[in-house]
C-alpha cells in the first residue's frame, strides 16, 4: 500500500543509496525535472545501477522518466524496464495518446525482453490544464494504468494561477482527478507540499488530500514522509470503529436481523466496505487493531 511517495533526484548518489531507509512507502527516482539535460545519461545509468545493485526491499521504486515530447524517454525505459520499477511516472501527460504512445513502446520492449506483455505499469502525471480536462479519458485508456498523479507546480503555471499554501487554486483539479481516477477504478496521488520547513502545513495539506479521497501523497522532502504516513494510515479510533462495525454485522447476522445501528447510526453497505478497507489497511501496515478480532 502506498501512502507516501518520495521524490529523489536521479543524479544524487547520496540520496539514492539511502532510498530504502527514509521511511517512504515508495521512492520516485526522478530523471526529469531534477536532472539537467546534459546529465540525463549519467542519471539514467546511476538509477539503473541503484536498482540493480542496491537492496530496496524496504520500499517500492517508481521512476519518473522524461516526457514523450523529449528525446530521452525511450532510452529511460530501455535502461530501466529490466529492473522492474513498480510503475513509470509519465510527466506532462496531456491526453490518452501520450499514454498510449508509452504503452505501445512498453509492449515492444516487453517482447524484446521476452517478458510477459502488460506487466509494466504506468502512472500519468497530470500537470497541465489539458491533462486535467482529459483526466478520465487518460485514467481509463489502458490496463497498464495504476494511478493518476497530480502535479500542482506545473499545473498552476499552466493555469496562470499563484501556487499557495492552502491550495485553493488546485481545489478543482484535485477533486476532478479524484473523481476521474475513482471512476476508472485506479488510485490517485496528491501533489507534494513544497515548503520543506513547515511541519504543521504538511499535516494540514495531507489531511485535506486524504479527506478529498486521495490514496496517498507525494513529497519532495524526506522530512514530510512521516507526516504523510501518519495521515494516510487509519487512526486507532478508525480501526476501533471498523472492528465495532464488523462485530455488529456479525451479531446482526447471527440474530437474523436485517438492518442494524451502531452509535446511533444505521450501518449500511458503504460503511461496512469502509470498515473492511480500514481493517485491511491496518493489517497491511502492521498496526495492531482491537484485540477482540
Amino acid at each position: 500500500m502506498l501512502r507516501s511517495l518520495l521524490f529523489l533526484p536521479g543524479n544524487n548518489p547520496n540520496m539514492l543509496i539511502n532510498a530504502g531507509t527514509l521511511g517512504a512507502d515508495a521512492v520516485i527516482f526522478d530523471l526529469e525535472d531534477a536532472v539537467s539535460p546534459d546529465e540525463k545519461d549519467a542519471a539514467r545509468i546511476l538509477v539503473r545501477n541503484t536498482m540493480k545493485y542496491m537492496n530496496l526491499e524496504a520500499c517500492e521504486v517508481i521512476v519518473r522518466i522524461n516526457s514523450v515530447d523529449t528525446s530521452f524517454w525511450m532510452e529511460d525505459i530501455n535502461a530501466l524496464l529490466p529492473y522492474k520499477p513498480l510503475v513509470f511516472l509519465l510527466p506532462k501527460t496531456n491526453c490518452k495518446d501520450d499514454v498510449l504512445k508509452v504503452c505501445g513502446y512498453l509492449s515492444e520492449c516487453e517482447k524484446k525482453l521476452e517478458a510477459e506483455e502488460g506487466t509494466a505499469f504506468v502512472m500519468p502525471l497530470i500537470e497541465t490544464a489539458q491533462g486535467v480536462e482529459n483526466a478520465f479519458d487518460i485514467a481509463s485508456c489502458s490496463k497498464r494504468i495504476k494511478a493518476l498523479f497530480l502535479g500542482a507546480e506545473d499545473l498552476t503555471a499552466d493555469l496562470g494561477s499563484k501556487r499557495t499554501k492552502d491550495g485553493r487554486e488546485i481545489e478543482y483539479a484535485r477533486s476532478r482527478l479524484v473523481v476521474a481516477a475513482r471512476a476508472a477504478g485506479v488510485d490517485v496521488f496528491d501533489t507534494p507540499f513544497t515548503d520543506v520547513n513547515d511541519d504543521e502545513g504538511i499535516l494540514d495539506d495531507a489531511l485535506l488530500a486524504k479527506n478529498l479521497g486521495f490514496s496517498g501523497k507525494a513529497s519532495i522532502s524526506p522530512r514530510h514522509v512521516s507526516a504523510i504516513n501518519r495521515v494516510f494510515s487509519p487512526s486507532s479510533e478508525e480501526i476501533e470503529y471498523a472492528y465495532e462495525v464488523m462485530m455488529a454485522i456479525k451479531e446482526a447476522k447471527e440474530q437474523g436481523k436485517g438492518a442494524i445501528a451502531l452509535r446511533g447510526k444505521m450501518i449500511d453497505a458503504p460503511i461496512v466496505q469502509r470498515a473492511e478497507k480500514t481493517i485491511a489497511m491496518a493489517k497491511a501496515l502492521g498496526i495492531r487493531g482491537d484485540e477482540n478480532e
Binding site: 548518489p13 543509496i17 545519461d41 549519467a42 545509468i45 546511476l46 545501477n49 541503484t50 545493485y53 542496491m54
Partner: peptide, 16 residues
C-alpha cells in the same frame, strides 16, 4: 562512493 555509483560513473564517462 558505493561500488554501484563508481560503476555508474565509469560507464557514463566511457559512453561520453
Amino acid at each position: 562512493a558505493l561500488e554501484c555509483v563508481i560503476r555508474a560513473r565509469v560507464e557514463t564517462a566511457v559512453l561520453r
